[in-house]
Design a protein around this nucleic acid. Sequence first.
DNA 1: TTGATCTCTGACTACGTAGACAACATCCTG
DNA 2: CAGGATGTTGTCTACGTAGTCAGAGATCAA
Lengths: 366, 366
Amino acid sequence: MADKTPPQPAGAARTRRPGSTDVAKLAGVSQKTVSRVLNGEPYVTEEVRTRVLAAVEELGYRRNNVARALNSGRTQRIGLVALGTALYGPSSLLIALERATRSTGYSFSVVNTVEGDPGGVAGAVDHLIEQGVDGIVLSEPIDEGQDIPLKIDVPVLTFGRFPGLAAEPILITGGDGVRAGRLATEHLLALGHRTVWHVAGPHRWWASRDRLEGWRQALADAGAPEPPVLEGDWSPASGYEAGLELAKNPEVTAIFVANDDMSIGVMRALTEAGIRVPDDISLVGFDDIPSAAYLTPPLTTIPQDFDTFAARGLADLIQEIEAPTGAHSQEPDPLSLQLVVRQSTSAPPSTPRSLPGRRPRRTPKK
Amino acid sequence: MADKTPPQPAGAARTRRPGSTDVAKLAGVSQKTVSRVLNGEPYVTEEVRTRVLAAVEELGYRRNNVARALNSGRTQRIGLVALGTALYGPSSLLIALERATRSTGYSFSVVNTVEGDPGGVAGAVDHLIEQGVDGIVLSEPIDEGQDIPLKIDVPVLTFGRFPGLAAEPILITGGDGVRAGRLATEHLLALGHRTVWHVAGPHRWWASRDRLEGWRQALADAGAPEPPVLEGDWSPASGYEAGLELAKNPEVTAIFVANDDMSIGVMRALTEAGIRVPDDISLVGFDDIPSAAYLTPPLTTIPQDFDTFAARGLADLIQEIEAPTGAHSQEPDPLSLQLVVRQSTSAPPSTPRSLPGRRPRRTPKK
DNA sequence: TTGATCTCTGACTACGTAGACAACATCCTG
DNA sequence: CAGGATGTTGTCTACGTAGTCAGAGATCAA
């Protein structure tokens, strides 16, 4: 065992990190014993233990999880496939997931897919599997137009249903978007509105479809006519566009908007048209973004409990990783669904609005 | 070399993934040759190449980056230490970073620290290093009250200056918060306001301090008096609180708020007090969140170009990872800084407001 | 005393990949 | 046709950790 010192590169030589072997040498024990100490295994003398720990301290040793992972086949890492957007929902979910992960000893790798990139999800998943993640989270179910033919050999967690995903051990969590859509719509109908209009999110998102479906069901149940659906892209700008349309139509008295950001755009468009919220038109949003309570008027909306979803879903996922029980999917949790009533909803006006918006206002600069 | 089949566990046996050895066996070549094909190394016959690729396909082989990393000492992963918040700035930065990473072949691990947790950053960094990341990004510089005594042996990238961080190869990117603060303040002064009030972010954030400093400089340069600073926590709620205070003071005619979310809260408080924006009070925000253009009134603010910062910073980081050149920090980029003027700012009112807010309004529900 | 059990420690090895180097075939140059 | 350059493939090994098993010493019961 000759100690060979490989030729140091001339430049800034980043010294090799000490390994358990180095610690062992310094402590005068075998590498395996160091491993034992570090993993708290039994059958180590107190004296040896302290000697090893001292050596660890002296060398500034840090255990190498890469080698560990190679050996055990477990990386203790979970991969998250997200959409590269700063939208409130996805962002919050990411945060919540990370927070939920902290205590479990797992860490997180994030890969974003560009929306619209066909096969983007499959590519992202491939990437993660090559990285050796122990489980995968698909946070934003999107209909990519074709089934996702994934050869995934790790458990998968999705938020909300994800038809078209062909993966075996699959877990589902998240709120019941359909019920949420119903709740919002029923609230408006109960206030006396003849019907409720809907500004939906992108049709490719299953979350949009769920809320849309809930809205449909509520209208059908109430025997209310179903107006045409306007579709946005979650952004305030798209809400604004939809709002311009809706402002033209004097029949509109109530709108369920699929998220709060679009609601802001809708409100702006209505305001510019001289339409008052909620006096002329009532508005219900979705998400309960932090600023929802501070808009003018404060927005009635439906909060999503990301922390709960994340914690529950992650617990299931980790359970499945550590003790595979085969596919057991979980129904959305019907609890914790409620409307936060603020000031953007009221009974419909007694008289219909006059057609061309009076008091025209300035338009916002881009 | 007897083929030993280890005893399969009775339950759901997750079959071992094929390795390059299995591919080699199937293709009738050596493992090394498989490696060559996969890495596009020269000196492989076209015929062998196709045979290997066929075997790869047949077995559904995926390269194991863990083993690869162990061998090379490089994980091709970058660790991000973030704060567990869904704030627009940090979220956008995260997204931007991930987006910038995609093309580089690197992936991303995220660890959040709980704000206020002393040593949280150090702990997060330790965790990442154990995971074997090749570089670290500290996205939100916070003053933890004590220096961060990090033994980091990988390059570090921070967004904005990060005093108190003791790490060697350190890179800095991000916008010039001081100049941005000046810009906002000067805009308001130029409109004729006697002075400008400031609602700052948390003092622990260096970003807050930078904007604060810029505001101070602008006031000093103009010989304007420096009013007391109100401090929020970036949330609309905290902005609302600050707004309530400011609404009481008839001297206030212009406010620079350190982010758009707080601006929304401030605007709400002013509106409730019957104060008009911008007629009575002018407001400048920071960030240019997507809804800023759709508030009432549309908010004048300063966008942050996260994509550019992220791309530039990441490029530097990766450069430093792959070809260490020693510490070379970079000054914030003075370019790309501009005010988006919308409708929340105007000249000050000619007559001071009467003291007690007329037209009192309802308060928003929690 | 003998052996059985328990405690502690170390030697050896696998994990999957890629680098170093060797072996061999082929082709070219003079 | 010798000598060298070039192309193609394989063997062996390291990377850092933890699992397996064996061995040494101590303790205890029969």
